[in-house]
């Protein structure tokens, strides 16, 4: 029903989830995004993106790891699925292809 292409922000979140591997949940993703990518996103923005990615089948989630710090709430931990991996790979491939097709003179001229 929904489109399966990746938005720019979604792609970032998906990559961060992959980077964090088994420790990917709201707060850690937010910190990672701000330290590595210089992107300040609110928690709800991230959760919306995660939810959408899960609907598209690129992420799977489980509830685990309640701590005192979290007021006894469990974390919603995410992991990239196989189709998520494929989507990332194809996005990367498409970019590479595009990069390679740029004529050399294009950037020289524009500078």
């Amino acid at each position: 029903m929904k489109g399966t292409n990746l938005g720019e922000f979604e792609e970032l979140v998906l990559l961060v989830v992959a980077v964090l591997f088994d420790e990917a949940y709201g707060v850690s993703i937010q910190e990672e995004l701000s330290s590595r990518c210089d992107r300040n996103a609110t928690l709800s923005t991230i959760h919306v993106a995660l939810h959408r990615l899960e609907e598209k089948g690129y992420l799977e989630s489980r509830l685990d790891g309640a701590t005192n710090e979290r007021g006894g709430r469990r974390k919603l931990l995410f992991r990239v699925t196989k189709s998520g991996k494929r989507a990332l790979a194809s996005a990367k491939e498409m970019r590479n292809e595009l990069w390679q097709s740029i004529p050399k003179s294009a950037f020289n001229l524009s500078v």
Binding site: G26, L63, R70, G71, R73
Partner: peptide, 17 residues
């Protein structure tokens, strides 16, 4: 319920932090 659990946890964690 699932989103609620996750979001409240995350909010609380940031708050304490």
């Amino acid at each position: 319920s699932r989103t609620l659990e996750a979001s409240l946890g995350d909010l609380e964690e940031k708050f304490q932090g």
